[in-house]
């Protein structure tokens, strides 16, 4: 076991993990945030998407030890009580949720996309979400939800932790 400290949804955590434990298993099993889903455990479905230091990642392909000292946002970090993030609200209103298993990962991917590109075209949305599989919806409603959220959010946005997002910088 190795001790790591990381910030999850603006809260500091110290947890013991196995060296080969994934960030996904640590978030679900050790931190108890089960909103992040495991659909394949090999980077192919996107259900486990979280945002690490401003970028979306497959948490099943990140070792927990690699996340030591990093800042993570999961689906649970987007809403505050009853107050939903515009993406969450739009996913509901546009009918983008069916079984919901893909939904947390979809929303996190969409958030990362909008953080770096606040006004994506439909094609950019589809490209940006290509790493998230959905078996239920056929994606049409999901794309509509992301478009709507982009409108709701408008120009300047704050992220879940209240700090300004800088988007992808290289």
């Amino acid at each position: 076991m190795v001790k790591i400290s990381l910030i999850i949804n603006a809260q500091p955590w110290e947890i013991q993990v196995e060296p080969d434990e994934t960030l996904l298993d640590a978030i679900r099993g050790k931190v108890g945030l089960t909103g992040t889903k495991k659909g394949c455990d090999s980077g192919e479905c996107g259900a486990c998407t979280v945002i690490m230091n401003g970028r979306s990642v497959n948490s099943c392909l990140v070792l927990a030890v690699e996340a030591d000292g990093q800042e993570i946002t999961t689906i649970e970090g987007l809403s505050h009580g009853q107050e939903l993030h515009p993406l969450q609200a739009a996913f509901i209103s546009e009918g983008a949720v069916q079984c919901g298993f893909c939904t947390p990962g979809m929303i996190m991917s969409a958030k990362a996309l909008l953080d770096s590109n606040p006004h994506p075209s439909e094609q950019q949305i589809r490209q940006g979400m290509a790493g998230n599989l959905c078996r239920c919806t056929g994606y049409g409603r999901i794309v509509a939800a992301v478009e709507k959220a982009a409108q709701l959010i408008g120009g300047d946005r704050l992220d879940a932790t209240g700090s300004r997002q800088t988007g992808n910088q290289v």
Partner: peptide, 15 residues
């Protein structure tokens, strides 16, 4: 809107 969508978009739904 879907009956249980709130739980699903917030990650609270229990599978």
């Amino acid at each position: 809107t879907k009956y249980d969508a709130f739980e699903k978009v917030t990650g609270q739904a229990q599978y």
